[in-house]
């Protein structure tokens, strides 16, 4: 490890950094701060000897902000270690950063296992001393060795009360039908009470289907029957949502987030009624 001043054009962003998405607004705020007072915390870089370049382990936002602020070089702590060690360092640093999403952390652990930095998910968790809830979720995921299924689905299947045969069947269904994590969890819920065929039929029916389309007016009607039953009517820049027992609501088409929140409300309402 050494302290160095490194020209910005020699630093590359790669997948060594667990962060896969950055928030543009925060980046712009950081760029303004860098313009005013410079970079106060050095970047953490890895010297990739094979490719003869520096790769960012921590500080991709500071690097971007430095470029926006027009800096030519930055202070950095440079590690000259193996790729495996570099991945461990990058993950240790990011594990404590609250704005990193669980998907990014899980993905990086999967990558480290794939690149044989660790032999298993459990070993990775032990190494980094992740929180108990995290550890148990990842440990459950680690019991099912099926890299084609997402870690969150593997964790849900492993922690369910299903028998080993049923778990295998659920995983096959998830792969065959391309179910999302949420749909897989719903499938597990329904599996014990109604059997595999009926459960998967209900889960698939929960996906919105185009039931009517008018080429002249451009009107489209989507229907979803299942955990949440609703009907979407899309016409002339407006979406009308009709949920069973909740009446109809008409909203402008421009703001998709409103629609997402509405669907969440409909689903939580159905959940509350079921519990009563």
């Amino acid at each position: 490890m050494k302290l160095a001043v490194v020209p910005l054009d020699q630093i590359h962003k790669t997948s060594m950094n667990p962060r896969q998405v950055v928030e543009r607004e925060r980046l712009e705020a950081l760029a303004k701060s860098v313009q005013q007072i410079g970079i106060t915390q050095p970047l953490i870089l890895w010297w990739n000897g094979a490719a003869e370049r520096y790769e960012v382990l921590d500080g991709s936002r500071r690097l971007e902000a430095a470029k926006l602020a027009g800096l030519k070089e930055v202070q950095a702590i440079v590690y000259e270690v193996s790729q495996e060690e570099a991945m461990k360092i990058a993950f240790s640093i990011h594990l404590s950063q609250e704005d990193l999403t669980p998907e990014e952390l899980l993905n990086y652990i999967d990558l480290m296992v794939q690149r044989e930095v660790f032999r298993s998910v459990e070993e990775a968790c032990r190494h980094f001393g992740v929180s108990r809830s995290w550890f148990y979720e990842l440990e459950r995921a680690g019991r099912i060795r099926d890299e084609k299924v997402a870690v969150s689905v593997r964790a849900a299947v492993a922690s369910s009360d299903l028998s080993e045969e049923e778990k295998k069947r659920v995983l096959e269904m998830v792969k065959e039908r391309g179910l999302t994590s949420r749909e897989a969890r719903r499938l597990i819920e329904l599996y014990a009470s109604m059997g595999p065929e009926e459960a998967v039929r209900i889960v698939e029916a929960s996906r919105p289907r185009l039931v009517y389309s008018d080429p002249l007016t451009g009107e489209e009607v989507y229907e979803c029957v299942g955990a949440a039953s609703y009907r979407l009517r899309v016409v002339e820049g407006f979406i009308t949502i009709e949920a069973r027992g909740s009446g109809a609501l008409r909203i402008p088409r421009v703001d998709a987030s409103i629609l997402v929140n509405l669907l969440r409300m409909v689903e939580s309402g159905r959940g509350a009624r079921r519990q009563r």
Partner: peptide, 26 residues
Amino acid sequence: NSRLRDLTSMAIQSFSQPVIETPRWV
């Protein structure tokens, strides 16, 4: 007929890092 492409374009423009790697693809 969906906004998925617009939203994905925005995600790439405003959020995505230059390299995204998963166990299946880069």
